[in-house]
């Protein structure tokens, strides 16, 4: 990697930012129904009569924005958790954090009926609370051994937490009525079927708080790669940095899951692809992964919407089909 670092950081923002913007501009134009941009932006046609504008602004654009937010959030959470736990196989999905957020969201959807699936911000808050609960479990586990969890222990803990939370999710579903169940099952697959801007706006406050943490964290994350003691000897307040990292990872996972359900594997595929491209320095990796995550999930969603058109698959199926084999490859490469 060539220096100076400042230029690398700016190039990262410019390059990966352009990629994310391009994905967000192109994605709404792709779909089963061709859309004429000229007609969509034609102010002389009233919105109620302008089918092109309706498809673009009501069906596709919110979905694209939600995809960008979910992808960015999960990728960033993956980077933070991997650095924090010194483990390349950590991610919101593998650690059970996504499942915790999903459980929180399910509880809110099922037992706070007036809010419903689009009801806000109850779902967002509950989702964040669920993510925080799952992260607390990981935090306690990681705290037991200061040198970081071994891959085996971490994966077993993640599998166990996932299974436990999935059972609770099934239990909640059991009490839900039929119409709710159909929607929540689809949502649990990781679906970006967002047809209003309300959930996106509701997720924004969580994301903004997390962004501040992400700007402050990367140096501590770099030193964590050497070990917590090393970080302390370099002037980092380790317990505080760990708390900020766990908390911000919970915030973004909660926001992502409240929007798109527990979309799997984004938090593990994207950070590794990005590290292959830009190196290991988290001041470059974190922004790059955040922007690349947005582009990645928006692209996956385009595939999900078009591959079996006119059927629209939940995007979680696509990311799992890509991410599962990738995860196995990573696991085998580790040995």
């Amino acid at each position: 990697m060539s220096f100076p670092l400042r230029r690398r950081v700016w190039l990262t923002f410019a390059g990966f930012g352009a990629l994310a913007v391009a994905a967000c501009v192109v994605a709404p134009l792709v779909g089963t129904t061709p859309v004429s941009l000229g007609r969509a932006f034609d102010r002389s046609i009233p919105f109620e009569a302008n089918v092109d504008a309706q498809i673009l602004f009501v069906a596709r654009l919110p979905r694209t924005l939600a995809g960008a937010i979910v992808g960015a959030a999960l990728a960033a959470a993956g980077v933070v958790l991997q650095a924090l736990l010194r483990n390349p196989l950590a991610s919101p999905f593998t650690l059970g954090v996504s499942a915790g957020a999903a459980l929180g969201a399910m509880l809110a959807i099922t037992f706070i009926p007036p809010l419903g699936l689009a009801g806000l911000p109850g779902v967002t808050v509950a989702s964040f609370a669920g993510a925080l609960g799952a992260v607390a479990v990981v935090y306690l586990l990681a705290g037991v051994r200061h040198r970081g969890l071994s891959t085996d222990v971490l994966l077993l803990a993640g599998v166990t937490l996932n299974a436990f939370l999935s059972a609770l999710i099934l239990l909640v579903q059991y009490f839900a009525d039929f119409s709710q169940t159909v929607r929540t099952v689809r949502w649990l697959m990781g679906d970006l079927d967002v047809s209003s801007y309300l959930p996106i706006v509701a997720a924004l406050p969580l994301l903004l708080v997390a962004l501040v943490a992400f700007a402050w964290l990367p140096r501590a994350l770099n030193l964590f790669a050497l070990g917590a003691e090393h970080a302390a000897a370099r002037g980092i307040d380790v317990p505080r940095a760990q708390r900020v990292a766990f908390f911000s990872a919970s915030l973004v996972t909660g926001a992502a899951v409240s929007l798109g359900g527990p979309v799997g594997f984004v938090g593990i595929v994207v950070p590794h692809l990005v590290r292959l491209m830009v190196g290991a320095d988290h001041r470059v990796v974190l922004p790059a992964a955040t922007l690349f995550g947005a582009a990645f999930l928006v692209s996956c969603d385009v595939i999900a919407r078009t591959v079996l058109a006119p059927m629209e698959l939940p995007v979680g199926i696509i990311t799992a089909l890509i991410g599962g084999p990738f995860f196995l490859w990573l696991l085998l490469r580790q040995r």
Binding site: M1, P88, N222, L223, D281
Partner: peptide, 19 residues
């Protein structure tokens, strides 16, 4: 020192400048 990720030698030396 065991690294969790692939840093370059210069990156490791630069981490000394963080304080």
């Amino acid at each position: 020192v065991h690294l969790a990720f692939d840093y370059t030698v210069l990156e490791i030396a630069l981490m000394g400048r963080y304080p």
